[in-house]
Simulated scan of single mutants.
Amino acid sequence: MPGDNWIDLLQDADTGIETLRAHFKGHAYDPHWHDSYLIGFTETGVQQFRCRQQRNVSTPGKVFFLEPGDIHDGDAPTEGGFTYRMLYIDPQWLDRELGALFEDVPSGFQLSVPQILFDDSRLAAGIDAAFQAVHGRDLRIVRQAALDELLGGLTRRLQWRKRIDDNPRLPMVALRARDYLHANLMRDIDLDDLARAAGCDRFRLSRAFKEAFGLPPHAYLIQLRLARARQLLGRGLAPAQVAADLGFADQSHLGRWFRRAYGVTPAYYRTRCSKLPD
């Protein structure tokens, strides 16, 4: 993509893994989350992002590793900007592959990432090799070998966490509101609807929701719709249809939010990540 900021994004048809290499100057993207694991490293410059209520500063060679749902933003605090490469790994694919590679995967547990930024030159090399094989559309056997090597490196940084439906420390009104948003993500709901579903007034709800999930309810709903938009665009649906299906005013409205979160337009994402012809 032209200009100071550019993004090169592809999706692997066999695994669904998305590979991204990008450069940003200044503001990169607004707070958002993904439903994938994000694993990558900074190539050049200084990459700054807020995640898990702290500011993280990544310099060349540092590895970052985020769980699905980790809210993060991004910006370049230095004049030259930063370049990074990254893989988006589907949680179901990761669980399935680890289950095939290892015999001692516990039942009733899910993978968690205890540390999101660290120095690990061996893992960075594994990310780079997997990125080049997948992004370069190398022979299938080469891609598989590189990904298996990467999985071996990731296990040093992953932990097993007992799978629970809800965190008991989160307030019940926030949990009810979250469930309502997930069930009604395509409806034109307002804070009064949400407050009634949660069983409290909307002012208390807004405070409790942001404290629990890091975003106010309206921003959380937009993130839900954007995550669904990525799925639909990846299946080949046209941006205008996706905007209409998800309750955006029009294609331009979807495009503004999509680019603020991901740095690319819905049309670009569809072209690069859809298995169907444009």
Rank of each mutant, 00 (worst) to 15 (best):
L232C: 02
R228Q: 14
I222P: 00
D245T: 01
L237V: 02
L246V: 01
P217F: 09
D201Q: 10
A212H: 07
A183I: 02
H218F: 13
P216T: 10
D201I: 06
Q231T: 15
F203R: 15
N184G: 05
G234I: 09
F203Y: 14
D188L: 07
Q223A: 14
A238D: 13
L185Q: 08
D245E: 12
L221D: 01
A244L: 08
A208Y: 03
A212K: 11
G234K: 11
L185N: 08
H182S: 11
H218G: 06
G234C: 10
D201W: 12
G247N: 02
A212P: 00
D201A: 08
A208R: 13
R207F: 07
A197I: 05
R202V: 09
M186E: 12
A243R: 00
D190E: 10
P216H: 15
R230Q: 13
H218M: 13
K210D: 11
A219I: 10
A195F: 01
L232N: 00
G214F: 10
R204Q: 14
F203E: 15
H218I: 09
R207T: 10
P217H: 11
R230M: 11
R187H: 08
P217M: 09
P216E: 14
F213W: 09
L194I: 08
M186I: 12
L237P: 00
F209V: 11
F203H: 14
A183V: 03
A197W: 06
L226T: 12
A198M: 05
N184L: 07
R204C: 04
S206G: 09
P217D: 05
L237Y: 11
R187V: 05
R196V: 08
L224Y: 01
A240Y: 00
H218L: 14
R230W: 00
Y220V: 03
L221T: 06
L246Q: 01
A208E: 14
D190C: 07
L215K: 11
D190P: 02
R196C: 08
S206E: 14
L224S: 02
R187P: 00
S206C: 08
G199C: 06
Y220P: 07
G199D: 05
G234L: 10
D245L: 12
M186K: 15
G214L: 11
Y180E: 10
P216V: 14
R230F: 03
L224F: 07
L194C: 04
L194D: 06
G236M: 09
R196F: 08
D201C: 06
D188E: 11
L205S: 03
D245Y: 00
D193V: 04
G214R: 07
A183C: 01
V242S: 03
L246T: 04
D245N: 04
L181P: 01
